[in-house]
Design a protein around this nucleic acid. Structure first.
Length: 462
RNA sequence: GGCCCCGUCGUCUAGCGGUUAGGAUCCAUGGUUUUCAUCCAUGUUACAGGAGUUCGAUUCUCCUCGGGGUCACCA
């Protein structure tokens, strides 16, 4: 069974890059009928926060990504890590290192001065003398000094590292006993049964270290997929400083989960020429072997297009429900079908849809100057008066077509073009020159509001 | 700097030895629309450079250049 995972450290909100690897992991597990598990890497007590964990969970909930099983918290697994540290110590595969921080720093400075690679010199690797006083030891693992470390990566292919180029006896437990990242990751991934690791390729250079741990403990090494980074417009790794990287900010801006997920799945991954993917299609078609090797630049132009696409194709009842999150309650409006049909064609975001709706529903108090100048020429007032009277006398006015007939009558009786009534009427109803079809607008507003707006406009612009 | 990864339109990408190098987005133009938006049509724009292998390279190899990642008692 395929088991994948998402393992964020709770130091802030869930960001776009993390979400994409989470999505890839989720999709790959689902595609294989496997499991997608969540592990919170909260071993750095100084930087972690409970709020951050909650923020990540909240984002998952919004997007409909659900982790299987219980959430694992590394902070609760100290005994497990301690057990393996002891095991390695007992087996002589790890050892206590009494080098002080000052000595370590000095060692590094010397190496840098000599233009050598900075690495631990193995001073306590085979130490059996009396430990120095006053130094709490760290635990270091005995890493291979020579030879090849091969990372089998499903995205990049086999990547070969030379131990002498990159390894040293790295710390697996700090002086206070707390285990370090590369150590616990390997243990947890193994213990949690994770056999397919999909993560950002900034972890690629950590992988050899983790492989050292896997081998020392006799664990089976999982399949890795290192997904290329998402870069900002400057071509650098997308970070929390880049703005608009908090996933929940997209909710506030009026993006739908569907659009965001569709946008993200196509960043670094493709399936031929297909652009639109439903969640079911993603689960069906996603395969990490189709992930791109190169980084992609984060650019939301396509997200807007996708969002508009999904809004257009969302049923009105669902849209009305969604819009309540943007302070728009449409439930009681008897013409909301017409309203939403008209407006969802022209909104890129739910937020925009909400404000477009409010604009129409609110009686205009000002009129765009240019629009007035252009529309209120000649006998515009007379036309509006004539039309207003017809609306007033009409018995049954419900559908857009009812209003349209009235407009046609005016056009025919006064022998004018459609624009002669359309333009001033539009300004009267909406206060400006652009907007949805007038027939629909009037049907949405109803007879009384329509007459009110016409009268208001005549008064204001006579 | 060491190590590792990457390099097709502005952007997201297809391509896996022979293609007029395709799609999407963006932009522009035209059509539809009383207007705006939608929608439809059309158009501009790309294989980083150089060697080699080959009858033939965007595709394979090498070099150069360019970009990125990573080098903690952070994750």
């Amino acid at each position: 069974m395929v088991v994948t995972r998402f393992a964020p450290s709770p130091t802030g909100y869930l960001h776009i890059g993390g979400l994409r690897t989470a999505l890839f992991s989720y999709l790959w597990a689902k595609k294989n009928g496997g499991k997608f598990v969540l592990r919170i890497e909260d071993t750095d007590k100084a930087r972690n926060s409970e709020e951050a964990t909650q923020a990540i969970l909240k984002a998952f909930e919004w997007l409909g990504l659900e982790a299987d099983g219980e959430i694992t918290y590394q902070s609760q697994r100290d005994e497990i890590y301690a057990k393996y540290i002891k095991q390695l110590l007992d087996e002589g595969k790890a050892y206590k290192c009494y080098m002080s921080k000052e000595e370590l720093t000095e060692l590094r400075e010397t190496q840098m001065a000599n233009k050598e690679r900075t690495k631990y010199n193995g001073k306590y690797r085979d130490f059996d003398g009396t430990p120095p006083e006053g130094v709490e030891p760290v635990i270091r693992i005995k890493a291979p000094l020579t030879g090849e470390i091969l990372v089998k990566d499903g995205v990049k292919g086999n990547i070969s590292f030379q131990a002498e180029d990159i390894l040293d006896d790295f710390v697996i437990a700090r002086a206070d006993g707390a285990p370090t990242y590369n150590f616990v990751v390997a243990i947890d991934d193994y213990l949690m049964g994770i056999n397919e690791v999909i993560r950002g390729d900034d972890h690629l250079s950590n992988t050899p270290k983790q492989i050292v741990v896997y081998k020392a403990l006799g664990f089976e090494i999982p399949m890795f997929y290192h997904v290329p980074m998402i870069h900002n417009s400057a071509g650098k790794k997308l970070s929390k400083r880049d703005g608009a990287t908090d996933v929940m900010a997209y909710k506030e801006m009026g993006y739908t989960p569907q659009a965001l997920l569709n946008f993200l799945v196509r960043l670094g991954w493709s399936h031929g020429d297909q652009e639109i993917f439903s969640m079911d299609e993603m689960k069906e078609l996603f395969n990490p072997k189709d992930i791109n090797k190169s980084a992609s630049i984060y650019n939301t132009e396509k997200l807007d297009w996708l969002n508009a696409h999904y809004i257009k194709n969302t049923p009105n009842s669902e849209l009305a429900e969604l819009l309540t999150q943007y302070d728009l309650v449409l439930a009681s409006h008897d013409k909301k079908e017409i309203l939403l049909d008209e407006l969802k064609e022209r909104a890129k975001t739910l937020k925009e849809l909400a404000s477009l709706t409010k604009e129409i529903l609110e009686t205009p108090t000002t009129y765009d100057e240019k629009a007035v100048k252009k529309a209120f020429k000649g006998n515009a007032i007379e036309v509006l008066n004539t039309f207003g009277a017809k609306v007033g006398n009409a018995k049954e006015l419900h559908l857009p077509s009812d209003y349209h007939h009235l407009m046609e009558e005016v056009v025919n009786e006064m022998e004018i073009g459609f624009g002669k009534i359309g333009q001033p009427l539009r300004v009267a109803l909406l206060g400006k020159m652009s907007g949805p079809g007038l027939d629909s607008v009037m049907a949405i507003l109803g007879k009384d509001e329509t007459m009110l707006r016409i009268a208001n406009a005549i008064t204001a612009n006579s």
